[in-house]
Amino acid sequence: MKIPIDPAAFAPVLAWLFKLWVRTIRFEPARDNTDFVARNERGEPTILALWHGEIFPATAFGHTLTSQVVTFVSQSKDGEVIARVLERIGHTTVRGSSTRGGVRALLQAKRIMERENRMAVFTVDGPKGPRHKPKEGIIFLAQRAGAKIVPIRAYPVRKKVFDKSWDHFVLPFPFTRCPVYVGEPMAVTTEKLTKEVLERETARLEARMLALGPK
């Protein structure tokens, strides 16, 4: 008789492993621009923008600063495991993505940001790409919440890159150095979000994110 095992049951172990893994990584912010946490605590709404492929090292860096965030997780079965792990490390999660349940998740995140003063975390090219092409949801949320977008890039020195995945997922090795680059906060337009305006704003965010990194 086959006994089904719910993968989400492993969330406590995975969360423990994640926190242990994070403690071994030596994060090196390129400059002192990590005051986005303090700005949010002062009541300035903030959204952190990450690339999907860098979600592990970027989330790990954020975990060293705060867990006062609300994170978007897809409604897939894999998303259920991820959501439980993130909740174990202190995140609030909302379920939805650009392909399913997106608008409801955005509005839910806005309410959580306002009620609990949490930063939102957005993997802007997820859940399925194209790689390094931001979706429009982050612009919509930033305008509705009156928030600024802070791009973050992480570059672990020793890592495994999963080249066959669409996002080239990066897994930092334990005990590696990890330079981190935090961009200046980006204020979005107050114009009506027509197709043309959304294309312009996502292109502006894309350029800012791609410019972050070693020179």
Rank of each mutant, 00 (worst) to 15 (best):
L193H: 09
K148M: 11
F18L: 14
R104Y: 09
E184S: 13
V197N: 11
Q108Y: 07
R118N: 13
C178P: 01
G53R: 04
L17Q: 12
I138K: 09
S98A: 15
H168N: 10
G213I: 10
F175W: 12
M186T: 10
V157G: 04
I55Q: 08
I5Y: 10
V170T: 06
E196P: 09
P172R: 12
G129S: 04
R115K: 13
H91P: 01
T99P: 10
A60R: 12
T190G: 14
M209V: 00
I47E: 01
M113N: 02
P179C: 11
M209H: 00
M113K: 13
E80F: 00
M186H: 13
F162R: 06
T202H: 13
V157I: 14
Y155D: 02
A207F: 02
V22R: 11
E28S: 02
F10K: 03
G90M: 03
A109P: 00
N117R: 15
A120Q: 05
R144A: 15
E206T: 08
V69Y: 15
M186G: 04
A8L: 02
L20P: 09
G126V: 03
T202S: 09
D32E: 12
K110I: 05
G90E: 03
F122P: 00
L210K: 15
P172W: 09
R95L: 03
L107V: 13
F61Y: 14
E114Q: 14
A154V: 05
F169I: 04
M119G: 05
K135S: 02
V73G: 08
P29K: 11
A58N: 11
R208P: 00
W166K: 07
D32S: 06
K160I: 08
K19Y: 04
M186K: 08
E116I: 05
D35C: 08
S97Q: 09
L17W: 07
R39P: 00
A154R: 01
R111W: 10
G126P: 01
E201G: 12
E28C: 00
F162C: 01
P57D: 14
A58S: 15
E28W: 01
I138S: 12
F173I: 00
R104A: 13
L210N: 15
V121Y: 14
T93P: 04
E80Q: 03
T194E: 14
A9C: 08
D167G: 06
K159G: 04
Y155F: 14
I89F: 01
R177P: 05
P134Q: 02
G183Y: 05
A15L: 01
E44R: 13
Q108F: 09
P185F: 12
W166F: 05
E54G: 04
T66W: 04
H52T: 01
V13P: 00
L198Q: 15
V70F: 06
T34I: 02
T46V: 13
R111T: 10
E201W: 06
C178H: 04
C178W: 07
P151L: 13
G183C: 08
F36K: 03
I152S: 05
W166Y: 10
E87S: 02
R158S: 03
F18K: 06
V157L: 10
F140V: 12
V197L: 11
A147M: 12
I112Y: 03
R23W: 09
A120G: 05
K215G: 00
G129D: 05
K110G: 03
L14K: 02
A83N: 10
D35K: 11
L171Y: 12
F10E: 08
E136F: 15
H168F: 11
L198A: 14
P172M: 11
V85T: 03
V157Q: 14
S98H: 12
P151A: 06
